[in-house]
Structures are given as C-alpha cells and as structure tokens.
Design a protein around this nucleic acid. Structure first.
Lengths: 103, 103
DNA sequence: TGAACATATGAATAGATGTTCATTTGTTAA
DNA sequence: TTAACAAATGAACATCTATTCATATGTTCA
C-alpha cells in the first residue's frame, strides 16, 4: 500500500510554487538568524537588530517577509513591537534542514 | 531541563549560513519540481526535461546544483545519466514545508 | 501639543541567480 | 573511426532580491 514517496502528499503542482516561495524565505541567512534569535523568546525589532549587529531597517524589512509568510507573530507593547516565532513548523523545518547540513 | 527551542541544536552561527544555502536550493520551483518528479523513481535528464516541459540545459544546470548539495544521486547507464533522490531528508524537508503551506 | 523614540516604508543600488543559446564532452553502435 | 545521441558547460542576459539611506508613521511622556 502506502509507499514512502511524497507523491501522495502533493496533490497539485501549483502547491510546489507556493512551497518554493516558502523555502525562499528560509533561504536567507539574515532571516534564518532572526528566526534563530527568536527561538529563545520574543524580542523587539531593535533588540534583534542589535543582537545581530545589523541595521534596524534591514531587520524591519525582513520581519515583514517573515510576517507575510506567517513565520513570526507580532505584538505591540507601547512603542515597541515584539516579534516571536509563529508556530512549530518553523522549528521543525529548521531542524530537518540541520540534519542534512550537519551530517 | 531541555526546553523546546532550537538553541541547543545550533552550535555555531556559521551553520546558519550553510543552512540558508541548503534552503536556497529548495527555494526554486524548477528544482522542487525535479525533486518531486524524482520521488517516483530515477529518471534520465531528458525524461525529466520532457516531464517538466523544460530545456535539457536548464534541467542539467539545476541537477548540478542538486548534486552539489547531495540532494540527488547519479548513475550512468550508457549514454544516459539516471538521477534519483539522495536521502530521506529531501522528502522530510519537503513534507515539513508542505504542512506549513497547506494549513 | 511637541519632543523623543521605535518601527515601517519607499526608492535606489549592487549583487545574486535562473534561463537560454551555442558548444563541448562523453558514449554507443554502425 | 565516425555519425548520432545524451548530458554538461560557459557566456550572456534579464530578473529578482537584500541592503542602505532617507523619510514617514505611530506611540509615549513631559
């Protein structure tokens, strides 16, 4: 019965384009570093920028990409916006990738 | 003890750059389609090109990228080169991505 | 209200990347 | 060995994308 290929899990080729778009988001070291630093807990934009030693604007632009792809969540507290990882998939996708990279 | 973040799984920031490079490979629909079509079994370069309706050269270029990242394997049989998926990580990474895309 | 601060946004630029065309390399079989 | 076929490669081009600078939006607090 059920073979172990992915054929059954991909109903439509259209989905592959969406999937490529998702992986594109993971395919940038700045965004990956943002997700990494957020894995310890929520942080403000400035805290992320300082933590990574990058410009506030750069981080803000990339956070937008992450937000649009539902990989991070935002919460406002006063003047600050606190970002955190959105769901478990983020971590799982990264872990799967790591297994491949580290082997 | 062991919290459920990914901090412990990422020993070095350097690795994040390698990881981004890996995800870059998944972040292209042509390469993703190649991996998809290979999930049914090994295929020659021409068979892939015809299956996807793309140029032989395009496929060959992308197969090289997949090869360099150890995502596909090659085997020569006469004039033809038969490509197949390299390991389980390929499928697992794609499946994780799909879970996110399809939700 | 207005000054100070945090974040978002837009335009511009530089660098990366995918595809195509033309050609080369490598293999088979006559 | 040579013709025919399969795959790989290189150069050129067009497109996309990440970063930066400058500025706008939004919030707090005096």
């Amino acid at each position: 019965m059920e073979t172990n290929n992915i054929t059954n899990d991909i109903p439509d080729i259209e989905v592959l384009f969406d999937l490529a778009d998702l992986f594109k988001v993971f395919g940038d070291s700045t965004r990956l570093r943002i997700m990494y630093i957020l894995s310890s807990g929520e942080l403000s934009v400035l805290a992320i920028a300082e933590g990574l030693g990058m410009e506030q604007s750069t981080i803000s632009h990339q956070l937008r990409v992450l937000r649009q792809n539902k990989l991070v969540r935002v919460r406002r507290d006063g003047k600050q916006m606190y970002y955190s990882l959105d769901d478990d998939h983020v971590q799982k996708i990264i872990e799967m990738g790591l297994e491949h990279v580290l082997e």
